[in-house]
């Protein structure tokens, strides 16, 4: 209840100081600053560097080093980003120009929009609703369509194959993701993310303890949806260059690359809210937000660490694994949810 009072205070103060309505402030600040794009940019710069550094460590190499040597090459990604931002955007003659240019922008905008709903701290969200758990899932479910458009508009064999794989992978992964989300919603008896977090704080038990299978399925399905390494058939560098993103250069390619990391960020933010208790040990806006942020980064580090552990899976292996192993497991997690539902009933 203390958190409730404080969060209203902070935003009201901001609203009265700037003279803007509170909903507008929320709707702009959350998707653009935190937990939205500003925080995401910082996370992406850190995570991609960490990905290269961790992979290098496991393979007993050194990894990026020469940009900002004292920080272990931490500014490498900034340098790469500046380079690629000023690169020429080449639009090939054979592509469908409007769709080709619009698709990455659309896709990234969808990811950014989904960040408006996911709370990044106590009261730090764009808008809340009683079905806010479904919104990010519905928005992220739109992205494969845009990626299919991207692959089709690029008019290239690699992009066709990549787009086809994206659709197959999404069909396999989204069912599992949705089943685990349903199990979660059933466990808490609510579709409101804010309410779910408050429930975990009230009982003091994070969701991962009560229903670990749903959490595991969510994590694995998130890895599949974001093309992380054990399931990176969509990008398949060995055989189809960059999958649907093959024909892109410059800033448009940056958007495409940020797309996968943005999806990962959104899903891991959702994971820390749903299963790790969100801002659990703390109540304050600042400390609570920091807690969620750190939880998200740790989850993303685990996700990128798995890159150096596993090899690629074949498409048919992925499809059979998700449909015949993980989907029944998702149904089992529904049964568990029905059983442990009592924990969170007030």
């Amino acid at each position: 209840m203390e958190a409730e009072g404080e969060r209203v205070m902070v935003l009201e103060q901001l609203a009265t100081q700037t003279g803007l309505p509170e909903w507008l402030l929320r709707g702009v600040l959350a998707p653009l600053v935190y937990p939205g794009l500003g925080a995401f940019a910082a996370v992406a710069l850190f995570i991609i560097w960490a990905e290269r550094k961790i992979a290098a460590k496991v393979q007993m190499r050194v990894g990026p080093l020469y940009v900002a040597r004292r920080l272990g090459g931490a500014l490498q990604l900034l340098a790469d980003g500046i380079r690629i931002t000023f690169q020429e955007i080449i639009v090939p003659v054979t592509v469908e120009k409007k769709a080709y240019v619009a698709a990455p922008i659309f896709a990234f905008a969808i990811v950014a929009a989904s960040l408006a709903v996911i709370p990044g701290g106590p009261g730090v969200y764009g808008f809340s609703s009683s079905v806010s758990l479904l919104v990010p899932f519905a928005l992220l479910g739109l992205i494969p369509i845009v990626i299919a458009v991207m692959g089709w508009a690029s008019n290239n064999k690699f992009t066709y194959i990549g787009a086809g794989r994206e659709i197959l992978v999404t069909v396999a992964g989204e069912v599992t993701l949705l089943a685990s989300l349903l199990a979660t919603a059933m466990m808490y008896g609510s579709l409101d993310i804010n309410k779910i977090v408050t429930m975990q704080i009230r009982t003091g038990i994070p969701g991962i303890v009560v229903n670990p299978i749903a959490a595991f399925l969510f994590f694995v399905a998130a890895l599949l949806m974001t093309d992380r390494i054990p399931f990176d058939v969509v990008l398949g560098e060995q055989e189809i260059v960059q999958g649907p993103y093959t024909e892109y250069t410059g800033l448009l390619f940056v958007l495409n690359m940020a797309l996968d990391y943005g999806k990962l960020y959104a899903l891991m933010l959702l994971f820390s809210d749903l299963f790790l208790g969100g801002w659990m040990p703390f109540d304050g806006v600042l400390l609570g937000s920091l807690t969620v942020f750190i939880k998200t980064i740790v989850l993303m580090l685990i996700a990128i660490f798995l890159r150096s552990v596993y090899g690629r899976m074949r498409i048919d292996q992925i499809a059979s694994m998700f449909w015949s192993r993980l989907f029944p497991l998702a149904l089992a997690s529904l049964v568990i949810s029905a059983a442990v539902h009592v924990v969170y009933t007030p």
Binding site: I54, A56, K57, V58, Q59, M60, R61, V62, F305, L306, S308, V309, Y310
Partner: peptide, 18 residues
């Protein structure tokens, strides 16, 4: 085992020539 092997190798010094 796979994850443990990767973690163990992370603790070892790199074997590259700078």
């Amino acid at each position: 085992d796979a994850i443990g092997a990767a973690l163990r190798r992370m603790t070892k010094p790199p074997m590259t020539l700078m």
